[in-house]
C-alpha cells in the first residue's frame, strides 16, 4: 500500500524505541493538534461537551 511517509530505516517501533529510548523527545500540544488535523481524523466525529454533564452521555429523545 502506498504510504505518505518517507521510507525510514526502521520497520517497527521496537527498533526505533531502542535507538531513541534514552533521548525520547516530548510531543508538544501544537504537534499533537497538527497530527490530528493531518492524519485520519476525518473518520472521527466531534465529542459533545456540555455544562449538563449527564447530557454528555446522551439524551433519550431530542
Amino acid at each position: 500500500m502506498k504510504s505518505n511517509f518517507k521510507p525510514s530505516t526502521s520497520n517497527n517501533y521496537k527498533e526505533l524505541e531502542k535507538s531513541h529510548e534514552h533521548n525520547k523527545p516530548q510531543l508538544t500540544n501544537e504537534e499533537f493538534e497538527d497530527y490530528i488535523l493531518k492524519s485520519g481524523a476525518k473518520g472521527s466525529f466531534m465529542i459533545y461537551r456540555s455544562k449538563n454533564k449527564s447530557d454528555e452521555l446522551g439524551i433519550d429523545e431530542l
Binding site: 466525529f45 466531534m46 465529542i47 459533545y48 452521555l57 446522551g58 431530542l62
Partner: peptide, 8 residues
C-alpha cells in the same frame, strides 16, 4: 434518541 459519539 441523541447519542454521544465518543468520536468513533
Amino acid at each position: 434518541p441523541a447519542i454521544q459519539s465518543g468520536a468513533n
